[in-house]
Design a protein around this nucleic acid. Structure first.
Lengths: 328, 328
DNA sequence: TTGTATGCGTTATCAT
DNA sequence: ATGATAACGCATACAA
């Protein structure tokens, strides 16, 4: 009833345990006759090797990656996860992913559990509210890559997007098209990416010699419904003549609000499926999420292969995709 | 340099291995003084237990779930995965998920690997092109749940959505609003859900006494771009007076085509983010994906708790959400 | 309450 | 080429 083991196979085939191990591990120096007997025994018994048992041997690992993101239900993270998963499988690795919901405690519990599961490497999107103090974590620590948000931890590689630069370019474009009073809609500014995009927004205004008015900056748009309500309020200000939406939820919210009030020029951060369906289609600051995932996996496997180089920080460029919604 | 083990902790604390094991497993009968020494040793050494090692002991498991879906980048599956992940964590379980890309070989490799990793249970969306012949898989097999598509395997539970019924209701609604020549747009009919929705479409037409015209049935819409092109072609037929889109990609494609040609009444299968942004908003047959994930997890943990009941097949209802696009 | 000895399924050493 | 035996990190009878 219990799962058959190598020992069972060895007995069934009338060979020694070690020979089965050799066969299973694809070693070549093995008598064809014995190999056939072993193969037959494996089939009749329905034997499957136990990788968990194998992985506790010195020099062996779980061939498993840990990934901690904010929320897999958000397309941004699911596309990212998919990209990492694809690369991982090319290397024979499986991915264990889990969502922190931006909750520091939940994040920490997940990380602890993944470490106990002995994942070979860890890719982490740090949660909004701090989470674990990495600097106090004692080695050995598996290869560690932070995504999207920087963390003070010398041993880890970091991959960021050019959030500030992308936002700045987008807002400058709105200004170039004649906007003078541009509203800013984002999720909580305690989130690094939101802060950076907000900084880019302010920088663009400053460069254009335009004033920053906190009345038209709102950072409470967690869902698209929140964002729709917020933009609705902002549009009551007749002088608001454009909107910069700092994430895809905010963009969707702006579109919803436009339906009920009035349309103004809009650029959003992050591409989203519905962007093409707007009339006009929605212009966005696009980041290459797949590239970020690919790069994270590449770094991880380079580290696992033994690359001892100093930790790196990569900032990926963003791209302003103009589709019409930026125009008055 | 290597990760510290229980033995290291025991030596550091000056106690026996077993006492550390007791402490780590939260047993109570333990001398407070020793407990303190052990706690200190764990901190200084940075000890973390090795769950992989623990899991090979009889009676212990990996506390890990395997999940095989089609494509995590598709919002349908990412929401599903997220729902399962949330429930799993409530039970102290981690989820290893992987995408088959509807490829039978890839699916089988993933399943094999997950079994070798000794996941405690397996949740599977069977791939389009057959994949593994489950009936030939030898026990013991972990608790197994098939999602979205039925499989001939008596030991497994199955959760389906009412694909045919949902499609039938939607098409009937289009008919009720005066449509007489309704185009059908779907992904490949080799996919079970597409076949079922197609059957519902035909049934509704039959019940309305309307003819089925294969000229306006297209099943090559894998992406929204494919779907847009297909719908564009269909709309050249002046008499096409409505579209039923059999999945969310097809719905998006229809909306794109409407922009370039003409708008006709539309109902889609599966809700999608952009549905609310259309003008009019897009009516859909909505399935409760979260409920499906929740239910899958519930069944799994009931089986893991030892429920020996016969395998069940659940068919979840769909809901027709009318938002305006169904009208002429 | 604490410790000793044994085994889980696997791979590695070293002999044959 | 094959096999006996030890070891991986952990938990559990069982003894003390």
């Amino acid at each position: 009833m219990a799962a058959p083991t190598m020992n069972d196979v060895a007995r069934e085939a009338g060979v020694a345990l070690k020979t089965v191990s050799r066969f299973v591990n694809g070693e070549t120096n093995i008598n064809p006759a014995m190999a056939a007997r072993i193969a037959a025994a494996i089939t009749t018994l329905g034997y499957r090797r136990n990788l968990a048992a194998a992985s506790i041997r010195p020099g062996w690992t779980s061939r498993t990656l840990g990934l901690v993101i904010s929320d897999l239900a958000n397309p941004y993270y699911s596309v990212l996860t998919r990209a990492i998963e694809s690369r991982a499988r090319e290397h024979g690795y499986l991915v264990i992913s889990a969502s922190s919901d931006e909750n520091g405690q939940q994040h920490d519990r997940i990380v602890d559990r993944l470490m106990e599961q002995r994942i070979d490497a860890l890719i982490v999107v740090p949660p909004r509210d701090a989470g674990r103090d990495w600097s106090s974590v004692t080695p050995p620590i598996p290869p560690l890559v932070f995504l999207d948000r920087p963390v003070e931890f010398p041993a880890a590689d970091v991959i960021l997007a050019d959030n500030a630069g992308g936002a700045r370019t987008a807002v400058a474009e709105l200004v170039r098209n004649g906007a003078r009073r541009i509203a800013f809609v984002s999720d909580d500014l305690s989130i690094y990416t939101m802060r950076e995009r907000h900084a880019g927004y302010r920088q663009a205004l400053a460069e254009a010699g335009l004033p920053v008015d906190e009345q038209i900056v709102t950072s409470s748009a967690h869902s698209s419904e929140d964002a729709a309500a917020a933009v609705g309020r902002l549009l009551r200000d007749e002088r608001v003549d454009a909107v910069f939406a700092a994430n895809n939820r905010a963009s969707v919210g702006a579109l919803l609000a436009f339906r009920e009030h009035r349309r103004v020029p809009l650029i959003g951060f992050d591409d989203f499926e519905a962007a093409l369906l707007g009339d006009p289609a929605v212009s966005v600051v696009s980041q290459d999420i797949q590239e970020m995932g690919r790069l994270a996996a590449e770094i991880v496997f380079r580290r696992l292969a033994g690359d001892p180089g100093a930790a790196t920080t990569r900032v990926l460029p963003t791209r302003l995709v103009l589709r019409g919604s930026e125009l008055p």
